[in-house]
Simulated scan of single mutants.
Amino acid sequence: MKAIQLIFTGLMSAVALSSPGCDPAPKKSTSGALIAQVVPQKKKDTEPERNTVKIALLLDTSNSMDGLINQAKAQLWDVVNKFTRAKCGNGTQPELQIALYQYGNDGLSSREGYVQQVLNFTSDLDEISEKLFSLTTNGGEEFCGTVIQRSLKQLDWGKNPDHLKIILIAGNEPFDQGRTHYKNAAIDAKEKGVIVNTVFCGNYDQGIYGKWKEGALLTGGDYMAIDHNRQVVHIDTPYDDAIIDLNSKLNTTYVSYGSMGRSKKEKQAAQDYNAQELEEVVVVKRAVSKSSRLYKNQDWDLVDASDEEEFDLSSIEQKDLPQELREKTAKEIELYIAQKKKERIQIQKEIQELNRKREMFIAQNQGQDETGELESAMINAIKKQAAQKDYRWE
């Protein structure tokens, strides 16, 4: 599983290297009154956008990439957990949005260049997990230039030059295949302020020969080569079972509402199950992510929604409340939400405390052969480059 962690670690290196600075003044939440239909509110034009890191993950889903996809499923939570510790120089913390594309799969349309947008930019971690688990592999044509250019045109990268805009593309065929040349895609990326990082699944020199390194350097990105099929034994810790138990308790603090409430809460449980089925350590990492600031569900959970500046409980119709709240008064509902919030904060605190002990245990028991040289190099690069930029990691 370390291979995909190298991808994300390299990504963090690129973040540190590419950041011109964080926004000097983060905005307050500008969400409008929450209503049962959960209609997203537009931001006011006069208010600056909150500092945001946007990552488009472009994954080769041809036959040979099963190992890559499985690792991506597991390591999603590692990159999320790294970003929970990211801060701007002014002390604010950036938002994280991830988009997902697949390419090189025979099941995709040939007219579209065997490319598909699986997920638009979102901060919904359950949605990201669900889409990763939906990916399957099937032999096909891998057109790197096409998928890069498609992601540049279809996604809203924004115009704020201080925001971090990153493409990470992984695959194992020559980078220069397809009608859209990667150099033209690189020009488009530079115009939008997007950095392209390339990950070749195979021999380092073979990736260079296949133009993967050049594809990264054209936009100031990083080139990496990994063994996508490498299996790394994870270290079990005395804290894993307790974290998993707390994760189950954490789920009971979510109070669904609105037309999407029930399905979203079911999706939360489904992604816990997917993580558990993949590996026990994955559900532990997911639980840590769920205890962080980046796991927010204000569009379907009353507890998170109540933190919004303009939250209005009276705007939610009785039929859009969960069954256990429909016969309660407004005051009783407010007290119920407050109690669930108190429980959640305590559970999240306990998970974070256990995770600190877990990380210390892993650091003390991890053998030297369980971390790759490239991984160590990337971590060192992060520390060095982050010191020169406005981003830092605690």
Rank of each mutant, 00 (worst) to 15 (best):
D236I: 00
D236C: 05
P238I: 02
Y239G: 00
D241T: 07
D241Q: 06
A242H: 00
I243N: 03
I244R: 06
D245V: 14
K249I: 02
L250K: 02
T252Y: 11
Y254C: 08
Y254F: 15
V255I: 02
S256V: 11
S256N: 14
Y257R: 04
Y257T: 03
M260T: 04
M260F: 11
G261F: 05
S263A: 15
S263E: 09
S263N: 12
K264A: 04
K265A: 15
K265G: 11
K267P: 04
Q268H: 14
Q271F: 09
Y273W: 04
Q276G: 06
L278N: 06
L278F: 03
V282N: 03
A287M: 00
A287G: 08
A287V: 02
K290F: 01
S291R: 00
L294T: 00
Y295Q: 08
Y295I: 01
N297W: 08
Q298N: 09
L302Q: 05
D304K: 01
E310C: 12
L313W: 02
L313C: 10
S314L: 12
Q318S: 08
Q318K: 10
D320V: 03
L321Q: 08
P322Q: 08
Q323G: 12
E324D: 11
L325R: 03
E327L: 14
K328E: 15
A330I: 14
I333S: 07
I333C: 00
L335C: 11
Y336L: 00
Y336C: 01
I337A: 01
I337M: 02
A338W: 12
A338M: 11
Q339L: 08
K340M: 10
I345A: 09
Q348H: 07
Q348T: 03
Q348K: 05
E353F: 06
N355A: 08
R356V: 05
R358N: 07
E359L: 15
G367M: 11
G367N: 04
Q368K: 14
Q368C: 10
